[in-house]
Design a protein around this nucleic acid. Structure first.
Lengths: 208, 208
DNA sequence: TTTCCGTAATGACATTTGTCATCTGCGGTG
DNA sequence: CACCGCAGATGACAAATGTCATTACGGAAA
């Protein structure tokens, strides 16, 4: 200790997979300019821990029980404005990236990166820069903007789990005929064979 | 080194997520009776590494590119009979567990366990014991056996992605009418509203 | 041997879904 | 203001799907 090192970056780790979270914490602890000050296994817990420990950077898993990473990032933006957020994910979907950017997430990386690389990215995010995985970014760009209207997307979302039109109509408070119209136009826009494949396509491109 | 420790357990780690694999290797290295002798990022690579390094225990991620963990375990059983296999997974589906047991997998754990616990389980598996996550086991038991016949399951699998009946008929080399019959009976057995929800139910219970 | 079950198919029928034209009303925009 | 796009709805029609009865064959079990 020479007394003139800068204060370490305070990091919050949120991941429901204990194995990964613990391992990650151990690896990040090796970097002497990073300090894992809090850990969480769920969305709500991450929020609570963030308020209690006020980290500089929150590293959030995308899929967590309670609230997913993007939802946590959104809450964090208003509740802890000084805290930068980043998302780490196994399954890189273009749609999630889009949502994440809207939540002012500064880093978006797949879990295929090395710990070294992750540490660098945490530093970059802390410094105010952004880092988006190039492959995911390319996917998001190639997917483009959604051609679906708000209602079309909503109805398609209800259709996703295979519900019959009557049920969708009730849930969306629409006439069954109207539901069929929206579904039909959405299916045509996505050039799918039926609403089920249309829903899959829209989901894959992040349009849902 | 006193010279009388038993030889460490030789472990192969296979996970496509570099972050997790690296972190895991670091944590397991802390246990002095475990030695990570090989790592792999895909199914085929895992197989190759196993043949090259002949580990005592292969810790396989369920979802990997090329070949999934269960597929690797199956190959390993014939090619390296002395090597015990275990599966680590994020998404614990009852169906995967069933497949895994058929492949003579000795350990099946979710990634929510701690590294300590994983190390213990590796030791148990190496000693010839089994360890199945209690919650996953309960799911598998409560799901019970599939009420579907072979053809019903096959047809339902083709139907899963939303393909129209004509296409399913071609793929299964069946008459469209026959396809509809199987789909109808399968839907009735699962008490679903249509083939799409039926497919989802069957998939969730591991009957596909 | 008779019976049962799974596989495979066909025909008939009802229901659901997909497609289209058409109508109304609302809120922007040139 | 006229025009356009979106929301919302209706009716009609075609196509896809779900349901059921029935037939036939082969293997396995009683």
């Amino acid at each position: 200790m020479t007394g003139n090192e800068p204060a370490p970056v305070r990091v919050l780790l949120a991941d429901d997979e204990h194995l990964i979270r613990g391992a990650l914490a151990a690896l990040l602890a090796l970097e002497d300019d990073l300090a894992v000050v809090a850990q969480a296994a769920s969305g709500p817990e991450a929020l609570a821990m963030a308020e209690a420990h006020r980290p500089d950077v929150a590293v959030l898993d995308l899929q967590m029980p309670g609230a997913d990473g993007v939802a946590v990032a959104t809450s964090l933006r208003s509740r802890l404005p000084g805290c930068r957020t980043m998302i780490v994910t196994s399954h890189g979907r273009a749609g999630h990236l889009k949502r994440a950017l809207e939540a002012d997430v500064r880093g978006f990386v797949p879990k295929t990166v090395s710990a070294q690389r992750l540490a660098e990215i945490i530093r970059a995010v802390h410094a105010g820069n952004r880092y988006i995985d190039p492959e995911l970014a390319a996917d998001a760009i190639s997917a483009g903007d959604s051609p679906l209207t708000a209602r079309e997307a909503e109805v398609l979302e209800y259709a996703e789990n295979g519900a019959p039109i009557a049920e969708i109509a009730v849930r969306a408070s629409l006439s069954p005929g109207t539901v069929r119209n929206y579904l039909s136009s959405a299916t045509a826009k996505l050039s799918a064979e039926n609403r089920h494949t249309a829903a899959r396509i829209a989901r894959a491109r992040g349009w849902l």
